[in-house]
Simulated assay, not measured.
Amino acid sequence: MLLASLLGLLMGLVMGLTGAGGGILGVPALVLGLGLSMTQAAPVSLLAVGAAAAVGAIDGLRHGLVRYRAALLIALLGALFSPLGVYFAHQLPEKLLMGLFSALMVLVAWRMLQREKVEAGPSDHGAASWGQKNCMLNQQTGRLAWTAKCSATLAALGAVTGAVSGLLGVGGGFLIVPAFKQLTDVQMRGIVATSLMVISLISLIGVGGALQAGVRIEPMGWVFIGASIVGMLAGRRLCAQVRARTLQVGFASLCVLVAAGMLLRALA
């Protein structure tokens, strides 16, 4: 139980510090640290990620940072595609799932280490130029302009996030945050808050699908979930005191190490 508490605390802490990316550490912590299988670990990780993300999302809603219409659309499509991911998770071999997860962690590490390009224009936080962004804020109202292109983009993002979430037991923040930066001119604080709301909704839906499929959460899993919420609260308090680049390099290095551990476990 102590190990479950420490691992949950670490995952929540990283999640709070990185703005949702730390959720990808949940499954490796449960598989490598607590000896669960991938199918056992996925719902525990999703519930821990969803509960911790909900804490951050509520804080974002209080401060008016969440783009809640966009979050609800992404979560709706995620809800439709998450059961598909859960279904395939129960059909694919354990070793293949672990290999896929390792590859995903390396991809997240690579994305994290890439230095962002600064472009001229009203928004400088994404790699796309001003004219290339699919979802733009209305300069008068400050809300997203809901064009057909914008709606289709967010719907597609929700579908992919939901399927990956159900398949591998991750919240999807590593997909949502860079996609929002690339395709919208929403500022970073709003992106993180919106991402946390989406993650909380999709994760809880994914947990429901897994429980329906017969997976049960053991007491050790509940300890991990509770500790992750505490870690999330601590991480959000500490994030302003740590340099962003230090967080990026540290998190990416941790992802590569954990990916190597997962791959060795899969090949054993």
Rank of each mutant, 00 (worst) to 15 (best):
L204P: 02
Q187R: 15
H90S: 07
L77E: 06
A179P: 02
V215P: 00
T141P: 05
G209H: 15
G208H: 06
L65S: 04
L97S: 00
A51M: 11
L10F: 14
R67G: 05
A240Q: 13
A156F: 12
G23Q: 03
G26E: 08
L73D: 09
V258T: 15
L2G: 06
L25M: 11
P122A: 15
R189C: 00
G121Q: 13
S82G: 00
G12V: 09
A193T: 07
L157P: 00
L30F: 09
T153A: 15
L254F: 12
L47F: 12
V108A: 10
A234Y: 00
L104W: 11
I199F: 00
V170Q: 02
L204N: 07
L137A: 06
A193V: 07
S165F: 04
R243Q: 12
V256C: 14
I205M: 13
S5W: 10
S195N: 05
G231H: 00
V256Q: 00
A120V: 03
R265W: 01
A252S: 05
G250Y: 04
L7G: 02
L36R: 12
N138G: 05
I225P: 00
L168C: 06
Q40M: 12
S5Y: 04
S82W: 05
R69K: 12
L3T: 15
A252Y: 01
G226F: 03
A54I: 10
A227V: 04
L32N: 01
R111S: 14
A53N: 11
V55K: 08
V223P: 04
L46F: 03
L2M: 14
M1G: 13
G35K: 15
G78C: 12
A179K: 03
V14E: 02
V242N: 09
G209S: 15
G142Y: 10
P28G: 08
I199W: 01
G23C: 08
A79H: 00
A51F: 06
L7N: 12
E116D: 13
G190T: 05
D124Q: 15
T194I: 10
S82I: 08
L211N: 03
S165R: 03
G214C: 14
A252F: 01
I205Y: 10
Q248K: 15
R265D: 09
P178C: 09
V106A: 08
V27T: 11
A127G: 13
S129M: 09
G22C: 04
V106D: 01
S253E: 02
F180K: 03
T153D: 08
G206Y: 10
A109M: 14
W130F: 07
G23D: 08
E119K: 14
V258M: 15
Q212Y: 14
V27F: 05
S45N: 09
D124L: 10
L46R: 02
L257K: 09
L168S: 01
A29L: 08
M112V: 09
L47T: 11
T194C: 02
A152I: 07
L47K: 10
R189G: 02
V258E: 11
Y87P: 01
I24N: 03
N138R: 12
G261Y: 10
I74C: 11
P28L: 14
M136S: 10
A240N: 13
E116I: 04
A240H: 10
V198R: 05
G26S: 15
G126H: 07
L73V: 13
P219N: 10
K95T: 11
S165A: 14
S165I: 07
L2H: 03
